[in-house]
Design a protein around this nucleic acid. Structure first.
Lengths: 343, 343
DNA sequence: TTGCTTTACGAAAACGTGGTAGTGTTGAAA
DNA sequence: TTTCAACACTACCACGTTTTCGTAAAGCAA
C-alpha cells in the first residue's frame, strides 16, 4: 500500500529541488544530463505519473467531457455514448456520464455538479421535462461561464450552441413516402406527446408526405401515446375498425407492440399492415417479423458531437478567450433500412 | 462570458482576506455577523460555487468513481451503469465511464488514465481479452496504490477485492432443471468460448442439472459460438438432425437467433423446441415468441457494487489508512422469468 | 582582477480551497 | 496601569504541478 509518488517525494529522495525533477522529466535542456537521467530512472522505477487533478487545477482544464442524457438503458443513447467515447478516447479525454431520468431537477443538479470545474464541456440531450417546461436557464448559465455545450437529438432553438441532429422531418417524410409507394392509403402515425421536439418534427414530415401525395391528412390517424402500457389498448381498438393499413411509429417499442397486437388479432404484417419504425435499434433487428426502420446512427451523432466539442475546446486554447461564436448545427443523414415489416 | 468567481475575487472585491470569505461562507463564528452576511450576499449574487478540482486536490479525493466495462451498447452493462449511477448520485458522486471494447490494452490504458487521481475507486467487469490472457497486473497495481476496486459479473479469483456476482452455476442449473421438468430430454447448451468466466460456470450448472436428473451429459450438445454470424449455420445443422428438443442459451442474442432458425425450418417454439436464455434483456421481452429468461438484475448489481465501493471509500476516511481488508463477494439472486418460449 | 556569458540548478508564484495559528484592537477586571 | 480575554479578522500552509525568474559557480576574454 504505497501511495502514488509525487514530484516532491522524488525531489526529497534525490536531494534536488522539485523544479529540477519536473524539468528533468520533461526533458528540459536546462538540466544537466547526469541529473536528468538519474531523475528519469528513479521516476520510472517508482512508476511516477503526474497527478491529473493537480494538472487540471494548474491548466484550468480537466480533459474530460460531461454527457447528460435522459436515459442510459436505451439503445439510441447508449450508441451515442459509445460514439462520444470513441472520439474522446482518441483525443485523451475522459467521459463523465449523468442521467437526467427525464427529470428537469436532476438535469439541473447534474449540470451544476459537473459545471464547477469537473469538466471542460457538455454534450447533452434534453430531458422531456425540460422540453416541456421550456426552462433552459441552467444551460445558458453554463454557456455564459464560457463552457461549451453541444446538444444532440433533443435540442431547442432557445439555446445558441453547437448542435447535432438528424433531419427528423425529411426522414419521416421518406418513410411515409415509401409506404405510399407500396400502395398504402391509410397510414397512421403513432407518436409521443408533442413537447419532445423530435416528435413534432416527425409529425410534420408525416403530414407533408401525405399532402404531397394527395392523401388526406386525418387527425384521427395520429395516435399520441404517453406510455407503452396504453399503446396496446389504443392500437387494438383502431385495428378493429380497420382504420389503417400502414403505421409509422416514432420508436421501435411502439412498432413492435403494434405488430404483436396485430398478430393477436389475426392480421398479417406486412400484408394487412405495413410497419415502419423510427430509430434502428436491437428490437427491430430481432423481432418477428424484423422491422423496417429509419436508421439514425447514434454512433455517428456521438462522434460528431464529441468532435465539435473537442475542436472548440482546443480552439479556445490557442485563440485564448472570446473567439467568434459561430455555432453550427450538424445534420446526420438517415436512411431507410428495409426489412420484413414492409413489402 | 464571465468566468466562474473564486474566493480570491470575492475577497478582493469586498476588500477582505480570502480566509474571511471562506469562513463566512462556511458560517464560521469567527467572523462578525455584518461581514459574514455581506460576503454571503455577494457570493450568492455571483453564484459562487467552490471549485471541485481545487477541493479534490486539497481533500485528496474526487468524489467520483470510475466504471470500466467491455461494452456500453449492451443491455446488461447499461443497466449496471444505471444502477451505479443511481447510488452514486445519491451519495454525491460522479460516474466516469470507460469502455474497454473487450480489449486488454484499452482496459489497461483506461485504468491508468483514471488511476492518476481522477477517481476515488473503480467498478469494473473484465474484458474478454483480459480474462483470456489472465494478466491482471494493472488491477493489482491500482489496488496496491490504495484505490479500492469492486469487480462485477466477469470477475477473477486471482484478484482480492470486493465482488458482485450472480450465482451463474445455480442459475443455469435452475433453468435446465425447469426444462427437464417440462419433459425435455435432449437439452443443448449454446455458449461462448470458455475463457469468459461466466461461460464456464453456466456450463457447470448445465452439466450438474443433467447428471442430477440421470440424463446423459453429451459434449456434442454443447455448442460453442465465437460470433453471432456463425450461430445460425451451426444451429440449423443440428436442428436438421433433430439433435435436441430444448436449448439453454447463455445470452439472448443466441436465443433469438435459434428461434428464428427453428421457425424457418418449420419447427415450432416451444412445442418442438423449448428455449431459455440467460440475461433478461429487451430482446426477450419483445421477440416472438417472448423468451423465457434467467434474469440477472444489472441494476441491482450496479446498486450493490456502488454501495460497496462508496462504503469502503467513506470508511477509509474515518479509520484513516490501512483498515482491515476484509473483502466480500456479494451474490445477487436470479430468478426464472417464464415466457412463451417454454411450456 | 574585472566583467561577461554559459551551465545547472533552486526559489517562488500560480491554480482554488480550507484549516490552523497568529495578530491587533477593544474593553474590562485586577 | 497592567493583564487578560474576547472579538474580528489575516497570514500562512498544504494539496501537486508547471513555469518564470533568479543566482551561484565556472569558464573565458580583456
Amino acid at each position: 500500500m504505497k501511495r502514488k509518488i509525487t514530484l516532491k517525494q522524488i525531489a526529497k529522495e534525490l536531494d534536488v529541488s522539485i523544479s529540477t525533477v519536473s524539468k528533468s522529466l520533461r526533458n528540459s535542456l536546462e538540466i544537466g544530463e547526469e541529473t536528468r537521467l538519474k531523475v528519469q530512472a528513479f521516476a520510472k522505477f517508482y512508476n511516477y505519473k503526474p497527478n491529473n487533478i493537480a494538472l487540471s487545477l494548474k491548466n484550468r482544464k480537466t480533459k474530460s467531457i460531461g454527457i447528460i442524457i435522459p436515459e442510459i438503458v436505451h439503445y439510441f443513447f447508449s450508441t451515442v455514448i459509445n460514439g462520444v467515447e470513441q472520439v474522446a478516447n482518441e483525443y485523451g479525454y475522459s467521459v463523465v456520464i449523468c442521467v437526467s431520468d427525464d427529470s428537469f431537477d436532476k438535469e439541473v443538479l447534474n449540470m451544476e455538479m459537473l459545471a464547477n470545474g469537473s469538466i471542460d464541456g457538455f454534450i447533452m440531450s434534453l430531458s422531456k421535462e425540460t422540453q416541456f417546461k421550456g426552462d433552459f436557464h441552467h444551460i445558458t448559465e453554463v454557456i455564459n461561464q464560457g463552457m461549451p455545450v453541444v446538444m444532440f437529438d433533443r435540442v431547442t432553438n432557445d439555446i445558441l450552441c453547437d448542435k447535432v441532429i438528424i433531419d427528423d422531418k425529411s426522414a419521416a417524410y421518406e418513410a411515409v413516402q415509401s409506404l405510399i409507394d407500396n400502395g398504402r392509403k391509410k397510414i397512421a402515425l403513432v407518436t409521443t406527446v408533442d413537447y419532445v421536439s423530435v416528435g413534432k418534427l416527425r409529425t410534420d414530415g408525416y403530414e407533408k408526405a401525405l399532402l404531397d401525395n394527395g392523401l388526406p391528412f386525418n387527425e384521427d390517424l395520429i395516435i399520441k401515446i404517453e406510455d407503452v402500457e396504453t399503446c396496446e389498448i389504443t392500437i387494438s381498438q383502431l385495428l378493429h375498425e380497420r382504420a389503417f393499413d400502414a403505421v409509422f411509429a416514432v420508436n421501435e417499442l411502439f412498432a413492435v407492440t403494434i405488430i404483436k397486437t396485430a398478430n393477436k388479432m389475426g392480421l398479417k404484417v406486412p400484408e394487412d399492415l405495413a410497419v415502419i419504425a423510427f430509430t434502428d435499434g436491437i428490437i427491430s433487428k430481432y423481432s418477428t417479423p424484423t422491422i423496417t426502420t429509419v436508421s439514425q446512427s447514434g454512433e455517428k451523432m456521438g462522434n460528431k458531437a464529441a468532435k465539435m466539442l473537442i475542436e472548440r475546446l482546443e480552439a479556445e486554447e490557442d485563440d485564448d478567450e472570446e473567439h467568434t461564436e459561430n455555432y453550427t448545427t450538424e445534420v446526420i443523414e438517415t436512411h431507410l433500412i428495409k426489412r420484413e415489416s414492409t413489402d
